[in-house]
Design a protein around this nucleic acid. Structure first.
Lengths: 182, 182
DNA sequence: ATATAACATGTAACTATTGACATGATTGAC
DNA sequence: GTCAATCATGTCAATAGTTACATGTTATAT
């Protein structure tokens, strides 16, 4: 499937970038809302893409002697990326969710333990949602035009907020249902 | 982390079950809404749990000679499971989503290609949502009481429907935004 | 009767991902 | 000046997960 390959190709196609910045993108920046990979997976994959001649790099010297590699996509890499991008894939597997797993087994805990779990989750998802909303408000005064990088950023950020909203709504319904017990 | 371990322990704790039925649960039954594992992962993990004395099995003969193993949890297994269940874990990593990845890179495709992608996704998620709603209506006339297996089934099924609703809403917002281009 | 789908259990090779180890440079604060 | 945080790049061992291989049984429909 090699999805990481295409995630890297796409990022590099957006603009030349270092392995370090790619890792940051997965860790805390906008891509973290739908993909992730540790640097220990990113660096070997970059090496592989280099072998396949889908990317190339330029050595940059930062300060006195610190080296960094600025990766750029090759025409071959761009072609493969766009080819992948246009493919229509079947619905992927439903994402794994440990909290839903615990909820499924909630009959093995007391109602008050489950309520504690629900409140804890609610706090975490509310925090995340607030963070995402702040990011959106800070970055976008209006809906960006289709065809720009900003449109992609906006669309996935909005999607992440809606996902949090939905999760929060579900947690509240669960709390309501637990409190309604006889 | 060994989450599969606890997913198996919980299922077996609900009621004695075979490896085959566990796999079905992950493939198409209610657990498929928040966890999955192929049978090639389930059987070795069952063997491991057996080694750890967290589960035991009884050989059942089906028909003439077909053998199946009905797994039961041990007191040690139950204790470990409940211990895990009560733990409060930090928010897990954001789930990976290939379609959001494509959306992030939508500036590399024409508006009509992206619209085609959106309509395709919309169809798939609508289909899944309808299937889930039918399951919910068929299985539950009222909200099950907290403390029953049925409550767990109901809660995660409802969560899956809300997740689809939210995804569908996001896709529609994206379609709207693309159509608003100058 | 017989074909097909579903039942039932496993292993092996490979790919994906994580966590720990490993090293060194640069920037900014005090 | 020196400490801490961050920049920057890698490897290695272990775990998690997928795909393909492998085998045999039983129920159901025609």
């Amino acid at each position: 499937m090699r999805t990481l390959k295409y995630a890297l190709l796409g990022l590099i196609d957006r603009e030349p970038i270092t392995g370090y910045d790619i890792s940051k993108e997965f860790e805390k920046r906008i891509m973290a809302n739908f993909w992730h990979a540790k640097h220990s997976q990113v660096y070997p994959e970059l090496k592989r893409l280099l072998d396949e001649e889908l990317i190339s790099f330029e050595l940059i010297i930062q300060g006195e002697k610190m080296e960094k590699k600025l990766y750029t996509i090759t025409p071959k890499g761009h072609a493969e990326f766009v080819d992948w991008l246009l493919q229509d894939e079947p619905l992927g597997v439903t994402p794994k969710d440990v909290f839903r797993l615990r909820t499924f087994f909630s009959d093995f805990m007391s109602a008050s333990d489950f309520e504690r779990h629900l409140h804890s989750q609610l706090g975490k998802h509310n925090f995340k949602k607030d963070y995402l909303e702040t990011s959106l408000d800070k970055s976008f005064k209006a809906i960006p035009k289709y065809g720009t990088k900003e449109f992609g950023d906006y669309a996935v950020l909005l999607g992440a907020i809606m996902r949090e909203d939905s999760y929060i709504a579900w947690l509240k319904v669960c709390l309501e249902a637990v409190s309604q017990r006889e």
